[in-house]
């Protein structure tokens, strides 16, 4: 009958301390059918582990020598894009200024091409995306009664998505993240602030990603509540 103390002997056999064909180990295996079968299964498993890791080693060596695997550039681009927007939390103002400048340039260029549109909001709220098409923020922009919903239009193609984030723009809590949406696919968003209520002033950004994860354009917009 298989007893608990048999396990200690089995451990010694499996780890090579005892020879299964000699002495106490041999006696136990002769007496206990459960031990015999368990030892056989554990040895088979150990062999299987070695074989599995051999496959892994071979596969890693083969993969290391491979170039231009499908989606390779897109994966690296996705890491950079993902990292960039996290880095942006610390350097948000640099990014905001750069994005705003780019947006102004884009709007100027766009207007030169399309002619001036009367009554268009003065804030830079549209952008020509890399590869063509536009991103236009509809609301909230400037002074508003309510921030919600966040809405925009774009010439996004199937598979494209947005990253949207909202930050506090008040002196007390400037740059504190209030809400964010990853891989957002519609043109409207009604978030709740992660903590408390919406502050009097916010700055929010929207970034458009193509289906391979490349950043094809972003806008940064400020808004404040009318009561401010």
């Amino acid at each position: 009958m298989h007893a608990k103390e048999h396990e200690a002997v089995l451990q010694q056999i499996v780890t090579g301390e005892l020879d299964a064909a000699e002495g106490r180990a041999a006696e136990l295996l002769a007496e206990c059918a459960t031990c015999r079968s368990r030892l056989e299964e554990l040895r088979a498993l150990a062999q299987n582990l070695s074989a599995t890791f051999r496959v892994e080693r071979d596969a890693l060596a083969e993969a290391a020598g491979l170039t231009d695997a499908p989606g390779e550039a897109a994966v690296a681009a996705a890491v950079r894009a993902r990292g960039k927007r996290r880095v942006a939390r610390r350097t948000f103002w640099i990014a905001a200024v750069a994005a705003a400048a780019a947006a102004v340039l884009a709007v100027v260029g766009d207007r030169l091409l399309r002619g001036s549109r009367s009554g268009v909001e003065e804030l830079p709220h549209d952008l020509i995306l890399d590869g063509g098409g536009t991103l236009t923020v509809e609301r909230p922009i400037g002074t508003v009664d309510s921030y919600l919903p966040f809405r925009w239009t774009s010439d996004a193609q199937p598979g494209w998505y947005y990253y949207v984030e909202v930050r506090d723009d008040t002196d007390e809590r400037r740059d504190e993240l209030l809400a964010e949406a990853e891989r957002w696919r519609t043109n409207e968003w009604s978030p709740s602030p992660e903590r408390g209520t919406w502050p009097d002033r916010i700055v929010w950004s929207i970034t458009v990603y193509d289906s391979t994860g490349n950043d094809v354009g972003s806008l940064v917009v400020r808004a404040r509540l009318a009561s401010d």
Binding site: L66, A69, G71
Partner: peptide
């Protein structure tokens, strides 16, 4: 993040190999 972007190319490479 830049180093990880390069290292993460192992993902499609491993998938393609397997």
């Amino acid at each position: 993040i830049e180093r990880f972007a390069e290292r993460s190319k192992c993902i499609p490479r491993i998938l393609a190999t397997q």
